[in-house]
Amino acid sequence: MARKATRIKTNTFSVRYQTRDEVEVAIKEIGDLQRKLEAKVIEQNNRLAEITEEYAPQMNEIKAELEPIQAAVQAWCESHRDELTNNGKTKTGNFNTGDVQWRQRPPSVSVRGADSVIENLHTLGLTRFIRTKEEVNKEAMLNEPELASMVAGVTIKTGIEDFVITPFEQDVS
C-alpha cells in the first residue's frame, strides 16, 4: 500500500554535513525515525483503544447505578424545594453530606438551516438579527504589498524560504 511521503518543513539551517554521502545517510535516517515515530503513534492509539474498551463496561455499570439514585434525590428535593431553598430565597439546599442547587441556564439560540433563517429574517425585515462580518482582505493586500505595508499594524513578509526534506518510503520489515 503506497502512502503519501511525510514532508518535514524547517527554516533554512547552517550546514553540518560535509559530503553528499553524509546527507544521503542523514535523509535515510530521517525517514527511518519518522517511520518509528508513526509506529509509536499507532502503538499508543492501540493501547488507548484497549484501555477505553477495558474500562467502558465498568464505567457504564457505575453510570447505570448512579442514574436512579440521582433521579430519586432530585425527585425528593423537587418536592421539598420550598423547604430547602427557604421559600425561594436561595437556590441551594444544604445537607450534612452535600448540597443541591437549582441553576438557571443562560439563554441560548440554536439555528437549523442558517441560509433559510437568513432569508426569512430578510423577508420579515429583521436584518438587525443578521451579522455582517468585516475582516481584512489579505489577498488584496498581497496584490498591492507596497500600499498595504504603509498601514500601521500590517507587515508583508516576503522572501521567507523553507527547507523541505521528503525521505523516500522504504519497506520496514
Rank of each mutant, 00 (worst) to 15 (best):
M1H: 13
M1G: 14
R3F: 13
K4Q: 13
N11T: 15
F13Y: 15
V15D: 08
R16P: 00
Q18S: 14
T19H: 08
R20T: 13
V23D: 00
E24I: 09
A26C: 08
A26T: 04
G31D: 02
L33A: 08
L33E: 09
Q34K: 06
Q34N: 10
Q34D: 04
L37N: 03
K40N: 12
E43F: 02
N45L: 08
N46W: 01
N46Y: 06
A49G: 01
I51C: 00
I51M: 07
T52S: 13
E53M: 11
E54W: 02
P57C: 07
Q58G: 11
I62P: 01
I62N: 09
A64F: 03
A64H: 09
L66M: 13
P68H: 04
P68E: 01
Q70V: 09
A71P: 01
A71K: 15
V73A: 07
Q74T: 14
A75S: 14
C77W: 03
C77Q: 02
D82Y: 05
T85G: 02
T85H: 05
N86A: 14
N87S: 07
G88A: 01
K89A: 10
K89V: 00
F95C: 07
F95I: 04
T97C: 07
D99R: 13
Q101H: 13
P106L: 09
P107G: 09
P107A: 14
V109N: 13
S110H: 12
D115V: 06
D115T: 09
V117H: 03
V117P: 02
I118A: 06
T123Q: 12
T123P: 02
G125N: 03
G125H: 03
T127M: 00
R128E: 11
R128C: 02
I130L: 00
V136A: 10
E139S: 04
E139Q: 08
A140Y: 05
L142N: 12
N143K: 14
N143S: 15
L147V: 03
S149I: 00
V151W: 05
T158G: 07
G159D: 09
I160T: 14
D162H: 11
D162M: 15
V164H: 08
I165D: 01
V172Q: 14
S173A: 13
